[in-house]
């Protein structure tokens, strides 16, 4: 299945893109999807821990065991700094 992956701010700079499409095996959970994304873009964890990245599925913070489905919108970003 194919999903869209969005990056913002620091993660967009580090991946060199704001949006990409990746292929994942059917039945992939959120945690495994993030692993796949981090394998593809190693710069994201070059200078920070995986645990400091935030991960959203369909515009909501994702639980690790949440199902990911064809056409979903994923997003990987750093701890937020608005205000």
């Amino acid at each position: 299945m194919h999903v869209k992956v969005l990056f913002f701010g620091a993660t967009a700079d580090e991946t060199g893109t704001t949006e990409s499409t990746i292929e994942l095996p059917e039945g992939t959970r959120a945690d495994a999807a993030l692993t796949e994304i981090l394998d593809r873009y190693p710069k994201l964890t070059a200078s920070r821990d995986r645990s400091s990245l935030l991960f959203a599925v369909n515009q909501e913070y994702a639980r690790a065991d949440e199902a990911v489905n064809e056409g979903d919108e994923l997003a990987v970003f750093t701890a937020v700094s608005g205000g």
């Binding site: 913002f8 620091a10 935030l54 913070y61 997003a75 750093t78 937020v80 700094s81 608005g82 205000g83």
Partner: peptide, 12 residues
Amino acid sequence: IKELKRTVPIWK
């Protein structure tokens, strides 16, 4: 404002 700075996806 405390929660916004913690959860709303905005970056500076």
